[in-house]
Design a protein around this nucleic acid. Sequence first.
RNA 1: UGGGGUAUGGGGUAAUUGGCAGCCCAGCGGAUUCUGGUUCCGUUAGUCUAGGUUCGAGUCCUAGUACCCCAACCA
Length: 578
Amino acid sequence: MIEPTVTSAGDFVADTVRADNAAGTYSGRVQTRFPPEPNGYLHIGHAKAIVADFGIAEQFGGTCNLRFDDTNPDTEDTEYVDSILDDIAWLGFAPAHVFYASDYFASLYDWAESLVILGLAYVDDQDQETISTQRGGFGKPGVESPYRDRTPAENLDLFRRMKAGEFADGTKVLRAKIDMQSDNMALRDPVMYRIRRGHHHRTHDAWVIYPTYDWAHGQSDALEGVTHSMCSLEFVSHRPLYDWYLAHLELPYEKPQQLEFARLELTHTITSKRKLRQLITEGIVDGWDDPRMPTLQGLRRRGYPAAAIRAFCAHIGVNKTNSRHSVEELESFVRTELNRTAQRRMAVLKPLRLVIDDWPTADGRTLGEARATGDTVAGVTEWFEIANNPECAEDGSRRVPFTGELYIEADDFAEVPPPKFFRLSVGREVRLRGAYLVTATGAVVDAQGAVTEVHATYDPMSRGGNAPDGRKVKSTLHWVSATHALDAEVRLYERLFAAESPGETTGDPLDDLNPGSVAVVQAKAEPALAPGDGGVAPGQVVQFERIGYFAADRAAPLVFHRTVGLKDEWAAVQKRAG
RNA sequence: UGGGGUAUGGGGUAAUUGGCAGCCCAGCGGAUUCUGGUUCCGUUAGUCUAGGUUCGAGUCCUAGUACCCCAACCA
C-alpha cells in the first residue's frame, strides 16, 4: 500500500509486541485498530495515532482495522464518517476492515445482561448529579447507591425494560458494581448504559440505551480479536476498568491489552475539536479545510504531502512523554518531500519591472531606441528550455518565454545594496535564471522614492545563463516575461496562533491568534503555471523558485496557497544585521 | 486533597536493559551550487535535584522537585 513506515526502534509498543510474541501470548498474532469517534474531522494528532496503529501492525505482519467509536448518538454523523474514510485513504492507509462499535450493540447488550446475572452490574434510579456527588472526590470516600444491592432478577427486569424504552431519558443507568472506595475514580461503579432517545446515524431509532465508551471499547476490541489496543495517555487510569470488564466476560479471542501513548501537540497549533469548531463558527477561518487548520483536510489543501506527514509521524514515534513538537520540524519533513517531488516554476510575488534596453525589437531596433521615440513596440520573444526539477531528471523541462521587459522580485533590487547583498543593483551583473546575464544600468524612482522600474543591459553571449569567459555572478534571479505574465492570486499563510502554546497564559487559545495569518498578493506567473497541459493540475504543489512551495487551489485556476517557504539565508543575514 | 503517568542539549527523541550519551529539528562555521534552495563536511550544547549501591549509573535504591491525567449518563 505504501512504503514501510518504520517505527522507531525504541518504541515501547514494539517492545511490548516483541515480548508478547516471545511469550506466545497471542500466538504471534498482532491486530490493532484506529478508533475515531465520528464527531469531527481528523487532524494532525490523529495522524500520529493512525501511523502508530497501522505501523505497528505492518511492522509485525499483523492487521489494522478502522473502527468508528459511535456510541454517542448526540454528537456523531455520517458527514464525519465520510471525511474520516477519505482522510485515511489520502494518508495512504487501507484498513483491513471497517467496523462500527454500533455493530456490536446487540453483543454488548447480551454481555451486560451476563454481568447483571452475575451480580456485577445494577440499575441505578438516581439522577446524574446525585451519582456524581456520591462518587466522592480525590482522597474522599464514595457513597454507595441505595440501589446497589438490588437482586440480579430485579436488575435484569429493570435493564430489559430500560432497553424496551419504558423509562424516560436520564432516569436510570446501568452501573458496574466494582468499588466505591477505589482510589481510581474510574472504578467507582462506572456507568455502562444510559437512556438517550437520540437519533443514531446508523442504528437510527432501534436503541434507546447506549453503551458508554468504557463499556464499549474493550469489548469491541475483544470481539474483533484486537491484541494491542493503543490509545492516548488520559486513558491510563481507565486500563484497570478495561481489564475488569474483560476479566468477567467469555472472550472469543485472547484478551486484548490497552497501551497508552502521548498525543501529538505542535507549537503554534491547537487540536481541541471544540476550539477548532469555534474558529469556524466565529469566522476566523473559512472551514474545516482552511489551509491554516491542523485538520488533515486543511493540511492537504495547504499542500502538505501525505508522505511527509507519514514520515514525520513515524519519525517522532510513540512515547509516554507529554511534549510539544515544533511545527518547524513538521515543516522540515514537508520541505524534504517537496524538494524531491515538486516541479519548479517561476512567479514574482512583488513585481518590479526590469527593462533590458539593448534587447532587440522585431523591427531591428533595440527596446531603448524604440522607447526613446515613445514607441511601445514589444521586444522579440525567445523561449528557454528550463528543467522542471533539478532533483528529478524524469520530470523533464518546460519552455519559458523571455523578452526585454520582465518582472523581477522587488526585493531582488537595491538602489543602495546593504552589506552581503548579492542581488541586483546598478552596475552589478546577475543571472536571470536559465536565460541571460544582465547588468543594471539605472533605476526609475517615483516621487515617494520608491523604485518603479529598473533598466539593464544583457550579454547576448550568455544565452542559457552562462558567460563564455566563465565569469561568475553572485546571484541568480527568477523572472517572468511581462508580456507573457499571467496574473495569479497567491495566499501567504503564517501561523494561525502567534504563541507557541496557544492559550497558555489566558486559558483561551483564541486570545493568541495571529491577526496576520493570511495575506493575499497579486503575483505575476510564468505561463506554465496555468492549469492544463504542461501546466499545473488542481491541488498540485510546485516550487516557486527561490520562494517556497505553493499548492494550486483545487477549484480556482491561478490561485495558489503557500504550503511552506524555502529556507531563507538572506532573511537570516538581515535579521542578524538587525 | 488521594491515585496514576512522565522527566536526557534551545525543541523533540534514542541508548543493545548496569558499559564510549547517539539521532532529528533549530543554531553556528565551511565546501559545492544557474534557487542565499538542495547536497556535503565540521561544530556549539544534555541525563530534574540531593544522597546511596557499584570497578562503572541516563539506567538500580532512598528522599525530594516539576509537569500532565483522573471526581461526564463525553471519547
